[in-house]
Structure formats: structure tokens, C-alpha cells
Amino acid sequence: MPNFLRAPSGAQIALLKAAVFFACLLPALDLALGWRNGTLGANPIETLTRASGEWTLRFLLITLAVSPLRRYSGLHWLLRLRRMLGLFAFTYAAAHFMAYIWLDQFFDWRAIAHDILDRPFIAVGFAAFVLLVPLAATSSKAAIRRLGGRRWQSLHRSVYAIAILAVIHFWWLVKADLLKPFIYALILAVLLGLRAWWRELERRRQLSVPPPAKHLDRPVIRIVQK
């Protein structure tokens, strides 16, 4: 592996971040141009709503993939992209929400309230969005300091629940062809399953602390990764 990938310099990280930022903007740009040029098909509102929803789901999964990728590739700087990816998940979720509230329902609050109360798939999607708001709001370094690392982390673990809700939201709205939601569910199951597996490994390791080795006269210090 080239050295700059293993341990990029500060400038290289900044460049990488900028590149990822623009890559993440591309779907939005594509949709905005499609809307302006009238190339989103016969039902552009549906296209926009669906695409922004699917990109939300994709960014949630990409964000959740950062830890496993980092762990198995050894590229620790990947972690420095995670906040941005998470914020893009929120941005596409907000666009999806606005497409629904504004373009689809045109601020018909009575119809929207009915939808949320009567239709589980809307309620679940709405809940996922509402839960995502505090995560976006506490994404800054200052917020981490204010909350304290531990509280911040337990708050941000709700992203697991949010991703599950998002997949259910997609699953329930499909008429008959469940292939796509199934693929998203499968990827999410792998990403969450890995975390459960890591916990299990950690538990086993802590249970099986080896007896002190005889040839060492100093106590063994084990560094346990959180």
C-alpha cells in the first residue's frame, strides 16, 4: 500500500476530505439538474422523493461501514471522514423529508398528520428523521466536549436504531418487489452483526485473561481496546 494511504499527512487528509465532500454532493447535484432540465421522468416528484430516500439509506450504511473498514484495513484516518458522511446522511434525509412535506403534500398539515398517525411506514420514517436531528445537532467538537465523550457516544449509538427504522420504512412502502429493501437489510445486518461479534470477542478476551507468564517477573499490562 502506498505510504500516503497508510499515514496521510494533514494536507493529504484535507484534500481527501474535500474530494469525498464533492463526491457526496454529486447525487444531489444530479437530481437538482434533472429537476431543472425536466429529465426526472414522468413523475419527477416521485423520482426526487425516492432518490433522496435511497441516498439517505446509502449514506447511513456508508457511515456505519466506516468502523469495520477501518478495523479490517488498518486505515485509521477513515474515522476522520465519518462525521461528514453522517452529516450527508442527515442532509439527504432532510431533503427527503422536505420533498415529502413540500412537493408531495404541499404543506397539507392535516394530510401529513393523518399520514403519520395512520400509516406505519410514514410514522417509522418520520421517527427515524426526528431521531437523526439530535445527532446532526451534536456533531461538532464543541458538542462532544459539552456532552462528554461517554454521553456523546451513547447518544450517537442511536444511529443503529435509526438505520433499522430507515430500512423498515423502505420495506413497508414497497408494493411487491422486496429485492431492493432486502439488499439494504442484508447490508445493515452485516454491519450490525459485526459490532455484535466484536462485543462478543471483547467479552471472551476479558474472560480469558491468561495467567501471568512465569518467565516475566513484572506484571503483564494488557491494553484493552474499547
Binding site: A42, N43, I45, E46, D104, Q105, F106, A111, D115, P120
Partner: peptide, 15 residues
């Protein structure tokens, strides 16, 4: 799973 009270006529924005 969804209301049938309104519809979007293809080519129109408002329901």
C-alpha cells in the same frame, strides 16, 4: 399503507 383521497395527475405538481 397510503391514502387514496388525492392523486397526482402526471405532469402536474399539486395533487
Amino acid at each position: 399503507r397510503w391514502s387514496q383521497a388525492t392523486e397526482r395527475r402526471i405532469g402536474e405538481i399539486r395533487k
